[in-house]
Amino acid sequence: MSAILLRSLAAAGAILICCAAPAMGASSRLGALRIDNPWARPTPPGAPTGAGYLTVTNTGKTADRLMGGASPLAERVEVHTVSMTGNVMRMRAMPEGAEIGPGKTLSLAPGGSHLMLVGVKQRIRPGDRIPVTLKFAKAGEVKVEFVAQMAPPPPAHGAH
């Protein structure tokens, strides 16, 4: 077998690994809901809170609501919305949940809304996977893993 063939095989392998591992966020389904790219920001040492982000697409015919969640790594997981009014960044809890209308996508992203991990029990480091059970008003519960990374993952397949 020639060295060129070996080298191209290695290159192909490297490309496959690159594309398969961190580039694409995970995707999971719960009934008519598709949850894409759950990720979280690593936290500084001693930080009592963290933030998780994701998108939820409702492929069904009725609206649902993301109510929050639970995680063994945090005391509570709440849906929060962040907005800028003038010079002030305001964060509000959404006890009534965040709506995902039929055919709509709810995007939790930095500077907008997030799942706040209240009372983080250990420091979240890059590469950590944080198990979170998401709670929806109608669809029920689903377990996802938030991958800790500094920047948002690129959109999953079908999102562009």
Partner: peptide, 22 residues
């Protein structure tokens, strides 16, 4: 400095802070 901040309650107790992120 012209920065503003104030407490805002969380859903299940405790608080967070609204502030000028500047």
């Amino acid at each position: 400095h012209g920065a503003w901040f104030g407490k805002a309650p969380l859903a299940a107790g405790g608080y967070t802070i609204d502030h000028s992120p500047l």
